[in-house]
Design a protein around this nucleic acid. Structure first.
Length: 278
DNA sequence: AGACGATGCGGAC
DNA sequence: TCCGCCTCGTCTT
């Protein structure tokens, strides 16, 4: 699941259902050793930055410095939202359970789930480029993102996955963004025009926003003009697996029907259409 | 029942 | 550049 859209979706859900309440924090599986330090505090805020999630908890006793929990889902991490009778028994390996009066969220399989101090949080944020899903990054930093996208001679397909350049794009959205931009992922980033780089940033924003809104990646509508922003409030039709992307994981291109090419780039599989992305 | 792969990343070499 | 970690749904036997 987890590219930036999953993290922003989780932050919005948990902000809505948990923030402002006293939260019972536990680690049924036991590997979140610091759960007891957070248990019973009030959750003040949930922040998403790229693929990173931060929870700010209120002080306990004399402690004044904010205390944060940092979560990164990695490849396998996921949240389950539980309400009512379903809330009792954790299913599978649950690293962290956040239980408020209104809902419970179970976290399993994260790469990171740790208590950090403000300096620790700042260190993580310092490694991240602008996040297409953060409004202030689009307003104030889109120029920075567009500039960074062209600052390297590495292939644009590698640059777009670099969280220090743009924070939140993962392997699926990389393929889909470059496909819709009509850009060959092997091209050196520094050879792209300003228009290309601006378009890549813009598409990153629009496609990630689709994922937040629909709770899953489904870019098929962007080919037919039925993208979420044109759809009103109609709920998205649930497509079958394998029908939700234009090139990612596809044997043939959904636009021209030609063969999709793949190459392993840094251990990640990159998909593109050599005709539509010439 | 068991194998396999996945939307990620950091560290060792 | 490769390896290891994290978990679970899906596929194969």
């Amino acid at each position: 699941m987890p590219e930036g859209h999953s993290i922003h979706r989780a932050a919005a859900d948990q902000r809505r259902d948990l923030a402002g309440d006293r939260i019972a924090v536990a680690s049924p599986q036991g590997r979140f050793v610091d759960a007891a330090r957070i248990d019973g505090r009030v959750l003040i805020e949930v922040e998403a930055h790229g693929k990173h999630l931060f929870y700010r908890f209120g002080g306990a006793g004399r402690a004044r410095t904010p205390i944060w929990v940092h979560v990164h889902l990695g490849l396998f991490g996921r949240f389950r939202r539980l309400t009512g009778v379903a809330r009792a028994e954790p299913r599978g390996q649950v690293r962290m359970r956040l239980a408020g009066p209104r809902a419970t969220f179970d976290l399993s399989g994260p790469t990171a789930c740790d208590v950090v101090d403000p300096a620790g949080r700042a260190a993580v944020l310092g490694r991240l480029g602008p996040d297409p899903l953060r409004p202030e990054d689009d307003g104030g930093n889109s120029g920075l993102a567009v500039e960074r996208l062209g600052a390297s001679r590495r292939p644009i397909g590698a640059v777009l996955l670099d969280q220090a350049i743009v924070a939140g794009v993962g392997n699926v959205y990389r393929a889909e963004v470059l496909f819709l931009a009509g850009v060959d992922p092997r091209r050196p980033a520094s050879s792209l025009s300003l228009e290309d780089r601006t378009q890549i940033w813009h598409l990153s924003r629009v496609l990630l926003a689709q994922g937040v809104r629909d709770r899953r990646i489904d870019t098929a509508d962007f080919l037919t003009g039925h993208a979420p922003e044109n759809r009103g409030d109609a709920p998205p039709r649930r497509r079958r697996r394998g029908e939700r992307t234009l090139v990612y994981g596809q044997p043939t291109c959904r636009r021209c029907d030609g063969g999709v090419r793949t190459v392993d780039l840094g251990g990640r599989r990159l998909y593109w259409c050599p005709t539509c992305q010439a």
